[in-house]
Measured scan of single mutants.
Amino acid sequence: ATNIVSKVKWYNSTKNFGFIEQDNGGKDVFVHKSAVDAAGLHSLEEGQDVIFDLEEKQGKAYAVNLRIK
């Protein structure tokens, strides 16, 4: 899926990962520091509106092509 609009559930800049809620009630989506860095960001804030693409690797959903709404 591409261009999903949602909100950051939480992000831990010390552990370099977090999760984004899915508005459709699906499972929370993992977001890694590499996606945050690629977006030119230093961190994410809880409740922040984001747009991302969903990529599945080894049966897990990852946020990629992250951008701020």
Results as ranks from 00 to 15, higher is better:
Ala1Phe: 13
Ala1Ser: 12
Ala1Gln: 13
Thr2Cys: 13
Thr2Trp: 12
Thr2Met: 12
Thr2Tyr: 13
Asn3Ala: 09
Asn3Leu: 06
Val5Thr: 11
Val5Lys: 11
Val5Cys: 13
Ser6Leu: 05
Ser6Trp: 09
Ser6Thr: 04
Lys7Ser: 05
Lys7Trp: 07
Lys7Gln: 06
Lys7Phe: 06
Lys7Asn: 05
Val8Gln: 01
Lys9Thr: 02
Trp10Ser: 02
Tyr11Pro: 00
Asn12Cys: 10
Asn12Gln: 07
Ser13Asp: 09
Thr14Pro: 05
Thr14Gly: 10
Thr14Ser: 13
Thr14Ile: 12
Thr14Met: 12
Thr14Trp: 12
Thr14His: 12
Lys15Trp: 12
Lys15Thr: 07
Lys15Phe: 11
Lys15Ala: 08
Asn16Phe: 09
Phe17Glu: 02
Phe17Gln: 02
Phe17Cys: 04
Phe17Thr: 01
Phe17Met: 06
Gly18Gln: 01
Gly18Pro: 02
Gly18Ile: 03
Gly18Asn: 01
Gly18Trp: 03
Phe19Cys: 05
Phe19Glu: 02
Phe19His: 02
Phe19Gln: 02
Ile20Asn: 00
Ile20Ala: 02
Ile20Thr: 00
Glu21Asn: 11
Glu21Phe: 15
Glu21Lys: 14
Glu21Ile: 15
Gln22Thr: 13
Gln22Lys: 12
Asp23Trp: 15
Asp23Gly: 15
Asn24Gln: 10
Asn24Thr: 10
Asn24Glu: 10
Asn24Ile: 10
Asn24Ala: 11
Asn24Ser: 11
Gly25Tyr: 08
Gly25Asn: 10
Gly26Trp: 09
Gly26Met: 11
Gly26Pro: 08
Lys27Leu: 10
Lys27His: 10
Lys27Ile: 09
Asp28Tyr: 05
Asp28Leu: 07
Asp28Gln: 07
Val29Ile: 12
Val29Cys: 05
Val29Gly: 00
Phe30Asp: 00
Phe30Arg: 02
Phe30Pro: 02
Val31Arg: 00
Val31Asp: 01
Val31Gln: 00
His32Lys: 02
Lys33Ile: 06
Lys33Phe: 09
Lys33Ser: 08
Ser34His: 10
Ser34Phe: 11
Ser34Asn: 10
Ala35Pro: 01
Ala35Gly: 03
Ala35Arg: 04
Ala35Thr: 09
Ala35His: 06
Val36Arg: 00
Asp37Ile: 15
Asp37His: 14
Asp37Leu: 15
Ala38Ser: 09
Ala38Lys: 12
Ala38Gln: 10
Ala38Gly: 07
Ala38Arg: 11
Ala39Tyr: 02
Ala39Trp: 03
Gly40Val: 03
Gly40Asn: 09
Gly40Met: 07
Gly40Arg: 07
Leu41Asn: 03
His42Leu: 13
His42Tyr: 12
His42Met: 12
Ser43Ile: 11
Ser43Cys: 12
Leu44Ile: 08
Leu44Asp: 00
Leu44Glu: 00
Glu45Arg: 14
Glu45Val: 14
Glu46Arg: 15
Glu46Asp: 09
Gln48Val: 09
Gln48Pro: 01
Gln48Asp: 10
Asp49Glu: 15
Asp49Leu: 15
Asp49Gly: 12
Val50Ile: 14
Val50Pro: 00
Val50Thr: 02
Ile51Pro: 00
Ile51Tyr: 07
Phe52Gly: 01
Asp53Gly: 03
Asp53Leu: 04
Asp53Trp: 05
Leu54Phe: 07
Leu54Tyr: 08
Leu54Asn: 02
Leu54Trp: 05
Glu55Ala: 12
Glu55Asn: 08
Glu55Pro: 00
Glu56Arg: 13
Glu56Gly: 07
Lys57Thr: 10
Lys57Asn: 11
Lys57Glu: 08
Gln58Met: 13
Gln58Pro: 06
Gln58Ala: 13
Gln58Ile: 07
Gly59Tyr: 05
Gly59His: 06
Lys60Ile: 08
Lys60Leu: 10
Ala61Val: 15
Ala61Arg: 14
Ala61Phe: 15
Ala61Met: 14
Tyr62Ala: 06
Tyr62Trp: 13
Tyr62Ser: 07
Tyr62Gln: 11
Tyr62Lys: 07
Tyr62Phe: 10
Ala63Val: 05
Ala63Ser: 02
Val64Asn: 05
Val64Ser: 07
Val64Tyr: 05
Val64Lys: 08
Val64Trp: 08
Asn65Tyr: 04
Leu66His: 01
Ile68Asp: 07
Ile68His: 06
Ile68Ala: 09
